[in-house]
Nucleic acid binder design. Structure first.
Lengths: 250, 250
DNA sequence: TGAGCGCGCTGACGCAGATCAGCATGTTGC
DNA sequence: GCAACATGCTGATCTGCGTCAGCGCGCTCA
C-alpha cells in the first residue's frame, strides 16, 4: 500500500506525471508546468472555488484533497459531473469559456494552485507542446464524463455504483493513492447519490447489496474490494480504461 | 429560414467559423484549417467511421449530413453520447488516445474530411494557436456531454426530450441549418431512445405528450417549435448555452 | 401484387427506484 | 451532560418508465 501525497518537487508532481503520459515534456515544459503548480492555496471543506455563471474565472490544479464539479438545476437538485483527485484540473472549461458553466466545490480541505486565464494562454503560446498536452488531459476528462453518461443512461443502480467505485480506484492508483485492495474515500452517501443520479436512500440499499454479495464494502471512509474480478465482471468494467501506455507525442 | 449547406470555400466553412468564435485565426491558420477540410469523402448511411477498441484511428471533420458517437455495452445495448452536425469533429479523442473509446456512425449519408494523427499533431506544432482553438472546440463538446449527463441524471423523460430538441435547434442555428421555428431532423425514435436513455416506446409517448401540450411537434423528419418560450421554461433550458460572443484569444 | 421489413404508434402489466417516515449513531458546541 | 445536527440505515408505499404484445402504414424488391 503506497498512499503518498503529492509533493511540490517538479520531478514527481501529479500534473507533470499525468501530462508526461501523453507528450514527452522538455525540461523547459516541465519547468513551466511546475511553475503553475508551485503557488499553493488552502481551501476549507465545502468552499466553492468556481461558480456557475460567473465570468473571468481562474482554473486550479488540485494538489491534495478531493473536489467535485457539478451543475445546479432549477429546483435545487444538482448533478455531480465528476470528482477530482490530486493532479486534476479544476474548472478548465471556465477559463476557456467566458463564463463558467459549472461549479467546483472542495469535498475535503484541499490544496490547489490557481491558474489564471493569462497564465494559461501565455503558457500555450510560449510552450506550444503544453497546449497539446492540456488538450490530451481535457480529452481524458471528457472520456470519464462519457463513461458517467453511459453509467446513467444504461446501467442499473448497482452496476452503476460498482463501476463508479472501480473507476475511482483506478484513478487513485494512477496517482499512488490506492491499490487493488481498496482506497480511502471521503465521500458521503449523499455525494454518491448526486453523482450517480440516485436517491441517498437507494445508494444505501445498493451498498448493502454489494456488501452482502461479497463484492465491495464501503465503511468508515474506506472502500475495500472484496472480490475485484467478480466486481469488474458485474460492472462490465473495461480494465484498459484510463490506461495509456507511454507518450503518444515524443 | 436560411438552411444552406456548408461550402468548401475557406472563408465560409463551418469549422473555420466555429474556431474563429474562440481564437482570431491568422490567414495562415485559416489556410491550414481549410486544408484539413478540403479532401472530402462520402460515406453511406449507417457506415461506421470510427470503431471502439481500434488503434491508430483518424479523426474526421463533418462537412454535410449527421453522425452520432456512441458506446456499446456488453448486452448489445448502446448509449449515444452525442450527434454531430456539419462543422463538428468526429472521433477527436480516438486520435489523441492510442485506441478509440467509442464508435462513430453516419446517421445520414455524409461528407467528411479525414484528419490523420500525423496531420493533426503536425498542424499543432506548426500553428500553435490551432492547438488552443481545438482545445476550445473539444471543451465545447465536453460541455455538451456534461449537459447530456445532467439530462440523464436529473431530468424526467419529457424534460429530457424537450431539452434535447432545444439543444439541437440551437446548434443547428449556429451553422445556419435551422431557426427558432424548427429544423429538419433525420433522427428516428430509436436513435432518440438510445441518446436519451429511454425505450423507443417511451420516446413515442413523450413526443405525443409534448405535442398534445402544444410545445413541440416532431413529424415526418421535421421538428417544429410550437411554443418556444414555454418549451424553454419546461426544460429549464439555458438560453446562453453554447453562446460565446466573440473570440477570447485575439 | 403481395411478401417482407422498418418505423410509428398504442394498451396492459411489472418492476426498479423514488418518496415518505422514522430510528440509531457519532460529533460539535454550549 | 445534553441539545442540535449530520450521516447512516431501514421498512412501507407509490410511480415513471420498461417490457411485452400487437396493429397499421409506407417503403422496396421479387
Amino acid at each position: 500500500m503506497t498512499e503518498r501525497p503529492a509533493t511540490p518537487s517538479s520531478q514527481d508532481n501529479p500534473l507533470v506525471r499525468k501530462l508526461s503520459a501523453f507528450v514527452r515534456l522538455s525540461p523547459n515544459d516541465v519547468e513551466v508546468v511546475a511553475g503553475m503548480f508551485r503557488r499553493r492555496r488552502n481551501f476549507a471543506m465545502g468552499v466553492e472555488l468556481i461558480h456557475q455563471g460567473q465570468v473571468g474565472q481562474s482554473a486550479f490544479v488540485l494538489a491534495s484533497g478531493w473536489a467535485c464539479s457539478y451543475k445546479l438545476l432549477s429546483g435545487g437538485t444538482r448533478q455531480i459531473v465528476d470528482f477530482q483527485v490530486p493532479g486534476d484540473f479544476l474548472g478548465l472549461r471556465s477559463v476557456l469559456f467566458r463564463t463558467s458553466d459549472h461549479n467546483v466545490e472542495a469535498v475535503t480541505t484541499i490544496q490547489a494552485s490557481e491558474v489564471t486565464q493569462r497564465d494559461l494562454l501565455a503558457a500555450f503560446t510560449e510552450t506550444p507542446r503544453l497546449a497539446t498536452a492540456v488538450l490530451w488531459a481535457a480529452s481524458r476528462d471528457e472520456a470519464m464524463v462519457v463513461e458517467h453518461l453511459v453509467n446513467l443512461g444504461r446501467r442499473s443502480a448497482s452496476e452503476r455504483m460498482a463501476h463508479f467505485l472501480l473507476e475511482l480506484g483506478a484513478r487513485l492508483r494512477l496517482v499512488g493513492m490506492g491499490n487493488s485492495t481498496g482506497f480511502a474515500c471521503p465521500l458521503s452517501q449523499y455525494l454518491l447519490a448526486d453523482a450517480l443520479g440516485l436517491s441517498a436512500v437507494h445508494v444505501n440499499r445498493v451498498l448493502r447489496e454489494l456488501r452482502e454479495d461479497g463484492l465491495v464494502t464501503f465503511r468508515r471512509g474506506r472502500v475495500e474490494f472484496r472480490n475485484y474480478d467478480a466486481l469488474v465482471d458485474f460492472a462490465s468494467f473495461d480494465r484498459a480504461y484510463l490506461d495509456h501506455d507511454g507518450p503518444l507525442l515524443s
